[in-house]
Amino acid sequence: MLVYEDVNGGTLRSYLHENSQHLSWNDMIKFSLQIANAVRYLHAKGIVNLGLHLENIFMHNNNIKLADYGLSNRLNGQAVKYQYLGFYKKSDVYTVGNLMQEMYNNIPFAENVVGPIDKYIKIYKDCLCDEPNSRPEI
């Protein structure tokens, strides 16, 4: 049995769908940073997610809550984990880039933002690079 913290905003997917008309550029940046910081925290603890998506990220009081740590528990006791930890971390970076792109594509205001949008797009495209070693650190 799993016991989760109470959340009042549903999944990130449902939250974006229900609130897309009311979200601002700052909200998208905030959510992206919260996701990246959560993954960075897990990586600092030697945990990789390998399964992050809009359905296992929850919203609570307009803040991100990760609800699933992917394969982290299954990898925890394996010696092979450390051999491939760098690759796994880069897989998580790819996933963060994918989430950033999904948020950008699902929020209609993005077309009206001029300045920082190019930097945001560059970050998620760098995260989505085919070559894992060319992706940025989280």
Rank of each mutant, 00 (worst) to 15 (best):
G77L: 03
T95G: 12
K90C: 06
G86A: 15
Y84W: 15
L99M: 03
N106E: 10
K81S: 15
K81A: 13
N76A: 15
V113A: 13
L75I: 00
A67H: 00
Y84R: 13
D92W: 04
N98K: 10
I107H: 05
N106F: 00
L66Q: 03
K89C: 03
N98W: 03
A79S: 10
N98A: 14
D68I: 02
E102T: 04
I107D: 13
K89A: 04
Y94E: 08
K81D: 12
F109G: 04
L66F: 00
G77N: 14
N73G: 08
Y88V: 00
Y88S: 10
P108A: 09
V96N: 07
N73Q: 09
Y69N: 06
L66W: 00
S72L: 05
K89Q: 15
Q78N: 12
G97Y: 08
L71W: 06
L71Y: 04
Y69I: 08
L99I: 09
Y82E: 13
N73W: 04
L75Q: 11
N98D: 05
V96T: 03
G97M: 10
A79T: 06
N76I: 08
L66C: 05
T95P: 01
D68H: 08
E111V: 09
E111F: 00
V113C: 10
D92F: 08
L85R: 09
Q83S: 08
E102W: 01
V114Q: 11
N73K: 12
G70H: 02
A67I: 03
V93Y: 06
P108E: 07
K90Q: 13
Q78W: 08
N105S: 14
L71F: 05
V80T: 11
K90N: 10
A110N: 11
F109Y: 07
Y69L: 05
N106H: 05
A110K: 04
S72T: 05
N106T: 04
N105L: 09
Y82V: 04
V93L: 10
V113N: 13
Y69K: 09
Q101G: 07
I107E: 07
V114M: 06
A110S: 14
Y82R: 11
S91Y: 09
K90G: 07
Y84G: 04
D68T: 02
L85D: 12
Y69R: 08
M100W: 02
V113H: 06
P108Q: 05
R74F: 06
G86E: 13
R74T: 03
F87Q: 15
Q78A: 12
D68V: 02
N105P: 04
